[in-house]
Nucleic acid binder design. Sequence first.
DNA 1: CGCGGTAATC
Length: 361
Amino acid sequence: MCLKRISPNSISRGAILLSLCEKGMILEARRYFDSLIMNNWVQDIVLYNIMIDGYVRHGNVEEAVELYKLITRRGITPTVVTFNSLIHGFCKRRNFHEARRFMDTIRLHGSEPTAVTYTTLMNAYCEDGNMHCMLELLQEMDAKCIVPTHVTYTVFIKALCKQRKLQEAVQLVHDMCDKGLNLDQVTYNTIIQCFCKAQNITKAFKLVNEMLLNNLEPTPVTYNILINCLCVYGNLKDADKLLISLLEQNVNLTKVAYTTIIKAHCVKGDVHRAFMFFHLMVEKGFEISVRDYSAVINRLCKRCLITEAQHFFCMMLSYGISPDHEICEVLLNAYHQCGDLISVYKMLAWMVKSGLLPQRL
DNA sequence: CGCGGTAATC
């Protein structure tokens, strides 16, 4: 664009900044943002909002607040979106005091909190198991004529599910329909998860059919929930069948589908199946982390399947992934427990060579 | 007319 002397506008700049934030490249995002500031190209609050939200998602509320202060120093008026992101940040930390303080600040700026603001706070209270505060906020919304959205309902469905009030959760779904609010995939996934936890697999699958009837394509998360459900509460063979049939149908899946079933097979001790799905996961081109290997190795060691655990360790090395200290410790302990001192020494030597242990023991 | 920002699911 620049070579063709087409100057990016604030919308294309926003797209670039948002993408950097979404990919977790927060430092690069900030560098880009600072370059825009330096050139005086940021007059738009949206760019600040994207950067602030990026920090919040990255878990850095402090930096988000610093940017908010910068906004006020520069005399730029923050929007409700600015505050919603900050409130979300404090909610993630369960700092209800600061979250609510910023809610008041919205009013001081002459605006009103929106359904998003309320839903953000309600979700945090939900995670805290505080239905009382959720209902208080709902009353406040009602008093201020702020209409709950389908997301607000989804948060309440989740809360009722947590309290094992499944009937009331279902009632809420009906209320939504009565109010003309359409359920989306996340709402369905939430309620499907409720029935899975209640070990009502039949109803969970019925809801998937209902989704399809409503022209909602199940998401990768839907399948992760179902696979996990079959692994934990149902028959592991059915989980295998489901995953394989989804693969045959070329359904879009995420890495979680694989790690879920691999985990189950490790726990059950069916290492062959675990291998099979692990290789499949690698073949599909997913990026495999140390954590993915740890999940397998930890579970196999717990079941004293040490040769098998070692196999995964070698596989990790062959893919050029560096083990961390923790994973080595787990293997060391396992070798020790079954009296395989040779392997203990080999491992220690390897750890020293790799800089995971000090030279002098 | 379309294009950029905030809440919920594994």
